[in-house]
């Protein structure tokens, strides 16, 4: 039934739903059902550290928490800017504030 298979090629929205839910459910549970709620603070601090060395756009940063088997994987995805940053010595000199 190749003719009908043609219609099945659309992206599978169910798997998208599941991925989105696994993240949100895991994130919300860290606050309410298990363990301390340090994930948002951890995110902020990690980003602060990276921002010290690299100009990053917050819109290009994604933080995911995945569960595989018994362990949780914190995935931090940062898109670095296209233009290379200025050399380190000058950067440290210019950062005064």
């Amino acid at each position: 039934m190749a003719f009908f298979d043609y219609f099945k090629r659309a992206p599978k929205s169910a798997s998208l739903a599941k991925d989105r839910l696994s993240i949100i459910v895991a994130r919300e549970r860290t606050g309410s059902r298990s363990g301390p709620d340090y994930l948002p603070a951890l995110q902020q601090e990690l980003l602060a550290v990276i921002a010290r060395y690299e100009t990053i756009d917050l819109a290009n940063v994604t933080v995911n928490l995945d569960k595989s088997g018994g362990c949780e994987v914190l995935e931090l995805n940062i898109v670095l800017p296209d233009t290379p940053p200025p050399p380190p010595p000058r950067l440290s000199a210019s950062v005064s504030a």
Partner: peptide, 10 residues
């Protein structure tokens, strides 16, 4: 089956 709805397993 078409992948348009979360399954019971999900």
């Amino acid at each position: 089956k078409r992948g348009e709805m979360l399954s019971v397993g999900d």
